[in-house]
Structure formats: C-alpha cells, structure tokens
Amino acid sequence: VDRLVILHEEAEDGNAMPDLSRPVQAVSNAVANLIKVGRDTINSSDDPILRQDMPGSLHRVEGASRLLEDACAMLKADPYSQPARYVRDLFVPHHQTSFSLPIFGNRKKLIDGARGILQGTSALLLCFDESEVRKIIRECKKVLDYLAVAEVIETMEDLVQFVKDLSPCLTKVSREVDSRQKELTHQVHRDILIRCLDQVKTLAPILICSMKIFIQIIAQGGKGAEEAAENRNYLAGRMTDEITEIIRVLQLTTYDEDEWE
C-alpha cells in the first residue's frame, strides 16, 4: 500500500496510471476465493464469536475489492484522472504530521481498495486465529476440570477411570500447544509455553503415582493418609498452575509486550 501511495504521489508530475486490469483481476479472484472459504468456515464453525466477527472482515474485503475494480476500470478510461495533492499523511500517524489534506479520485480508490483488502484479510486471519486459540483453551479447561476431581478419587477403579479420561485430553493439549508454540513469532511466549508443557508432562505421571499411593494407604488402614493427600494436592495444584499459565500465554498478543515495539 505504501508503494501504491508513492506511485500516487509521483503521479503529481502528470504521469498516467498504467492499465492494471490484469493484476486487479488476479486480486479479485483471490478475494472471491477468500470470501468462499471464509463463508464455509463461518457456516461450519461452532464458535459463536467467530460466527459474529468474521462476516464483518469478509464484507470489508469484498467492498475493498469492488473499490479496486471500479478504480481500475475508471483509470483505464481516464489514466490522468484526479492526481494526488498531499498523500504522505496517509501513512504517517496524524500526531506526527503537520498537514492533512485530502486526496481525490480514482487513484485514491485504488489505494483505499488495496489497503482495505489487506487490512480486511489481516482482520479475518486474526479472527480465525483467535478462534483457534479458543479451541486449545477449551481443551486446557477440560484438563483443569479433571485435575479438580483428583482430590475425590479414593479407589483404584476410580483412578483407572481418571487416567482413562485425563490421558487423551492431556495428549491433545500437549499436541496442540506444541504446534501452537511452533507458529508463534514471539520468542518469550514460545519459551513459556514450552516450559509449562514440559512441566505438565513431568508432573502428570508423578500425580498419578501420588494418587495411587494415597489409595493404597487408605486401603491399608490410613496411616500417613494426610501427608499422601497433601502431596497429591500439591502436585494437582502445580499442574493446575502450569495449565492456567498456558491459557494466559495463549491469549497474549505480541502487542502485549513492550519488547515487541
């Protein structure tokens, strides 16, 4: 978009805008594909927030694409159409610029169209990404729910069922968090996720072991049951803390961190 703006500025010298029909058509085709895929995603998603937020981004991209097509058609008909006056303020924040005059005509439409397409696509990706994060968090919360019942397990039979329930859930969380951290560009967030996941993996078998010890102790008369319960609760608490931290970091964006700036 910045480069288009510069082209627009150069057009002040009276140069004609070239015929952009073919590349604009390629952009329109790509937009049409995104609209189709986006609508399919909305229709097949069970995430109410995505279903609410994504249509707005799609409309924005769709409208911007039309703007681009219109501008292209009009510039083709009149290549000298309405040159720019002052456009630097388009990409300089308002508090840093000493002037702010409008630009006119089809060249502006072209720039606004390209900008709208990129911003709309970016918003759509963000909306999709946030939905993916919510999916992982749902799995994390299932693990938290299981951990909360660790304290009430008092028989081997219940423990076997507990392990059967918890294991697939933990495996899923582990797989999803691991693939998420690989996608992140923010090194600090990646490191925290890796560290928490390692802790969860280490703690899980120790927690099961502590639960087994507690069950065996109460089956044999209960001497030392209090300490065994304390140990089990401590381990369940540690795991809960690690999962809670994973949830927190999953929701962070790069803009939350000063160092990104």
Binding site: R3, A16, P18, R22, A26, V27, L34, V37, T41, L125
Partner: peptide
C-alpha cells in the same frame, strides 16, 4: 489451512498488483 492459503494468494496478488503499477510507472517516468 484453506483460509491461510486464500490469504496468501491475496498477499501475492496484491504484491503483484503493486509491482505491476511500479514497473509501468517507472517506464513512464
């Protein structure tokens, strides 16, 4: 996956549009 691919196509097409505009403009200048 499909959304990411669609978004990449848009980025590529928009970039090609700007390149087309730039090179044509340079020739004129």
């Amino acid at each position: 996956e499909m959304i990411l691919e669609a978004a990449k196509s848009i980025a590529a097409a928009t970039s090609a549009l700007v390149k087309a505009a730039s090179s044509a403009q340079r020739e004129l200048i």
